[in-house]
Amino acid sequence: MGGLFSERRSLLIGIGATVALVVFLIVVGEEKSLVIGLTQGSAYGMVALGLALIYKSSGVFNFAQGEFGTVALYVLYLLDIKGNYWLAIIGALAAAGLMGFATERLVVRPLFEAPRVILLVATAGVALLAIGVELWFADAQAKPVAKAFSRNDRITVFDVQITDQRLWLIVTLAALAVLLGLFFTRTNLGLAIIGASQEPTATELVGISVRRLSSFTWVLAAVLGGLAAVIAIPDLGSFGPGAMTSNYLIPAFTAAVLGGMTSLPGAFVGGVLIGIIQSVATSAPLFQDGGELAIPGVPSTLIVFVVLLVVLVARPQGLLGKRA
């Protein structure tokens, strides 16, 4: 009963906080930040989803999550030049999945028994390697990448246009959060991944190959990272080496922590919240030069890190996470 209760309570806290935030922002005139936070934060959420997935299954914070996406972008760029956009998208996701598979086989698996912190550093190494290869390939030149949906003004909320591309991102993210939630609670494979993360020995003893699960999880997370990139980045029109790591990894990490690190809906909610916080910090006079909460010389968006610290101290399990 306790478990159910606390899960529901967490959900209520999350929903309550969200409603309070929405009302508050509308009252203080920052309602645009709501829309911007949703549209921009959904990209954070998507990356956070992959982070949560890996963390959930192996207890590792995957620094390479961003680069799964950037690699997908390069493949999209290369394939789109000479072919069908949607086939290029599929190719890009396949490339991301392949990179996830290779990362698992070549880096994660040999370090299976090593302390998690070693693995964490190893994933950072994968990211740096990927960025190095990207620099070698593209030489710091940005590459253009086209949108799948070009209309920008179909939907306008609070005077903020939500581009069709963003709409696609939001819908995809919301659907993924729900589908993955079901996957982890309703399917044998999903349950096995959770089981393996907690009791690898027992998992083997019921006949499940933990290593195969690990491969599957990394491929899935990498494809999610690729999906985040190929949907979110075209809205910006171009990208360069390390694009996903530099733009999205830290906010996504914050989002994942905010959401509870292992909670998939939490990653979604956390991403949107981080987007809103960044937007408010950028626009609200309170945080600008001369504002009551401004710290001279400190970028207003550092507030995001303050939020992260507060969350970690006050509620280590995150908004939607469960106490270990």
């Binding site: 349950l191 959770i194 089981g195 907690q198 009791e199 020995t201 027992a202 003893l205 469960k322």
Partner: peptide, 9 residues
């Protein structure tokens, strides 16, 4: 030994 049930499940 130690049961090793899956605690979160």
């Amino acid at each position: 030994e130690g049961r090793r049930v899956f605690p979160a499940l």
